[in-house]
Amino acid sequence: MEDRHSAKQTCGGGVLFAIMFIVGLAGALVAGWWGFPQLLYSQNSQPIRFSHKVHAEAGGMECKQCHTYAASGQYVGLPSTEACGECHADETGGKSDSDKEIDKLVKTYVQPNKPIPWLTYQFQPDNVFFSHSAHTGFECVSCHPDVAKMDNPPVYYQDRLSTYSKQTMRMPGCERCHAELGVNNACYVCHK
């Protein structure tokens, strides 16, 4: 404490200060850009490793075949367990990974007829009003991840604090598109 006035100390301190400053800066940047997202988002996988690729390509199914628009267009919806059961009524008994996954589906959900807790990447919070019927002119993939070509469903990142899905389209995204297309951006167009 007493020798803090010495010139040497000040000088050396200055260099040390600068070095440590840079160390701190770098550390914070790494922690903030790499570490923080790990902390903020939980990573979840779908209850069943559903392959859109198999269904879309091999099965020759259209998106809308399972994701039927509800009559009012309000909620595009996920297929019901019954719908899955139409094709996967019985266990395959197979040994391959796919067969095992199908058997898991049949055993855990189809047979007891329990709803499958699918994770919705674009899940919107309660205060959002979204109508698919007003957006029929768009390709599904302009907002949704193009899962049709995916064999594995992507990881679902959920913000631990807000409970939002990381992939959810956020307000600025909606607003931008509305603005570009000259569509009303009034609050109640999208909020309820």
């Binding site: 440590m20 840079i22 701190g24 800066l25 550390g27 914070a28 922690a31 807000s162």
Partner: peptide, 28 residues
């Protein structure tokens, strides 16, 4: 040195999403 580290850390943190994103997520 400690002050330098803290200052650097503080400045660095300002340029990461940590504070801003957390603040936003808390509001959400």
């Amino acid at each position: 040195a400690v002050i330098g580290l803290i200052a650097g850390g503080a400045v660095g943190t300002m340029f990461t999403p940590a504070i801003w994103k957390t603040t936003g997520s808390i509001a959400l």
